[in-house]
Design a binder for these strands. Structure first.
Lengths: 160, 160
DNA sequence: AAAATAGTGAGCAGAGTGCCCTATTCAGAC
DNA sequence: GTCTGAATAGGGCACTCTGCTCACTATTTT
């Protein structure tokens, strides 16, 4: 397996490992080895490599915000004075309801994902964002539903 | 613990559990019980309740698309003939590079999250979306970076 | 007062983990 | 052809963790 780039490139066996984990995130190394027809040593070695190579993101992503009392998700497009972008990101990071933000190409500078308890809460959060120095305009869109829930399995299947 | 609504409402102990899990997603029940100062039985019971109540989302969300060979993320706003929305969602679900889609309020009908290998790949995927019956227009924005990586800890901390 | 709920502590058989070592296979380098 | 490194398999061992049960104690609800 080659390593020319910094990031380790996953092969088919890794893919199958991830598929098996998607089926059952709690499955043990023994069970994984069994379903994949590999030895336990191999599975453990590969899992360690996957972890070390940054193939896994934070556990936060598996927590359902609705269970925490934030049933609403909204996307807020934020237009800013671009030279202040770095500072604005730091300011936004202080708002706990902002669960994610992407710097974007195109008309919008930032796409911010927000969770909130209700519409009034969203209104308040939007105000907080607008109050940040350098933020010029926001456009809020409420997510009515996750019509395609986050998934990577179709991509995994294609490499299987 | 009260249960007025269908969804189980998390209390402070649950929150601390989730925090501990965020710190170390692989920590065992024994370790969790130790750090929280609870008995192992209690931790196991609470974890089971959390799982049953749907507090955890799919494992997919923890897989880094970049590790799979999809370093680029884009958000595509899709405008559709609204009466065909349901069918369009089914069609979009067949496109593996679409990792998530939200039905939106506001000008945009759908906000689609896409991962791709490069700009040409994104162009191709956008074409595939446009080719779906009932899709009228798309607006693609490439994510230059996740300036605030997905996080729920600030919200967890606030309930701690 | 009785009942439900959450927690504790103890115990136990079985399963899983982390770690070690060795052997084999295989592809690429020399 | 030979060498080397990587991936894998298989064995083994001490230790930990799990799943489960049961009995007991608080606390809260009814």
């Amino acid at each position: 397996m080659l390593m020319f780039c910094t990031m380790y490139s996953l092969d088919k066996t890794d893919t199958k490992l991830l598929q098996a984990l998607s089926d059952d995130p709690r499955s043990t190394f023994v069970a994984l080895a069994d379903t994949l027809g590999l030895s336990r040593n191999t599975v453990q070695a590969r899992m360690k490599r996957l972890e070390d190579s940054g193939a896994f993101l934070g556990f936060d992503r598996r927590i359902n915000p609705a269970a925490l009392g934030y049933p609403l998700t909204a996307f807020i497009e934020v237009h800013v004075q671009q030279k202040r972008l770095a500072q604005i990101v730091l300011d936004l990071a202080l708002i706990p309801e902002i669960v994610q933000a992407h710097g974007m190409s195109g008309q919008t500078d930032l796409l911010v994902r927000v969770v909130c308890t209700d519409a009034a809460d969203l209104f308040r959060i939007d105000g907080t964002i607008l109050a940040c120095d350098g933020v010029e305009r926001t456009e809020t869109s409420l997510a009515m539903g996750e019509v395609i829930p986050y998934r990577l399995t179709p991509l995994l299947d294609r490499r299987g």
